Amino acid sequence: MAEQTGVKRETAPEGTLADKVEWLINHMWPADAGPPKTNIEVAAAITAATGEEISSTTVWKLRTGRQDNPQLRTLTALARFFAVPLGYFGAPAESRSIEDDLTLQALRRKLDDGTIRPDVLRAFTDLPADVRWLVDEMILAATQAAKLRTKA
């Protein structure tokens, strides 16, 4: 139903490497690393945690899609830092189950840190399908509006 509104679901992406890297930074950032504000901070955190030298330019290229075929050592460092399987960066058909699992992990983090209230999530699952669809569409529209606002 989301396709009717043109709004994408906030799940682990099937798209480009840039989409996948950006999703990891926004949803799977390690709690003990402190929130990243710049590509320099992202690169420094990955380098510090993995020992693999990643430059801020490399992070920028990956996030913007200017580099879509990085070295295996770069992908391995990203996979280790974000605690995802290396296969996450593979072809969409190979990584679909990994992406579903990562989406569930991100949801669990939101539940654990109180960002999403468990009682609200339980209430959502108890709604009839037609009402749940309406809530789905409202959430997707709100997500799209937030993305547009942050780009402005």
Rank of each mutant, 00 (worst) to 15 (best):
P13T: 06
P13D: 14
E14P: 03
E14A: 15
G15N: 12
G15K: 11
D19H: 10
D19K: 06
K20N: 05
K20D: 06
E22F: 00
E22Q: 14
W23S: 02
W23L: 07
L24P: 00
L24V: 03
L24Q: 02
L24F: 04
I25N: 03
N26L: 14
H27I: 05
H27L: 08
M28T: 04
M28W: 08
P30F: 12
A31G: 05
D32A: 13
A33Y: 01
G34I: 07
P35K: 12
P35C: 10
P36Q: 14
P36N: 13
T38E: 11
E41Q: 13
V42P: 01
A43P: 02
A43V: 03
A44K: 05
A44Y: 01
A44F: 03
A45F: 02
A45T: 02
T47E: 12
T47N: 04
A48I: 02
A48L: 09
A49K: 10
T50G: 05
E52P: 00
S55N: 08
S56V: 01
S56W: 04
T57E: 14
T57Q: 12
V59I: 15
K61Y: 10
L62R: 01
R63K: 15
T64P: 01
G65I: 04
R66S: 09
R66D: 14
Q67P: 00
Q67E: 14
N69L: 06
N69V: 08
P70A: 12
Q71C: 03
L72N: 05
A77T: 02
A79S: 14
F82V: 04
V84E: 02
F89R: 00
F89V: 01
G90D: 13
A91E: 15
A91L: 13
P92A: 11
P92T: 03
A93D: 13
A93V: 08
A93Y: 09
S95W: 02
R96M: 11
S97P: 09
S97L: 14
I98V: 15
D101V: 09
D101F: 07
T103G: 09
L104H: 08
Q105M: 13
A106P: 03
A106K: 07
R108E: 15
R109Q: 07
R109H: 07
K110C: 07
D112R: 11
D113L: 05
T115I: 08
T115L: 07
I116K: 00
I116S: 00
R117K: 15
R117A: 14
P118H: 09
D119M: 10
D119C: 06
V120C: 06
L121C: 12
L121G: 10
R122F: 10
A123Y: 08
F124K: 01
T125E: 12
T125I: 09
T125Q: 11
T125R: 13
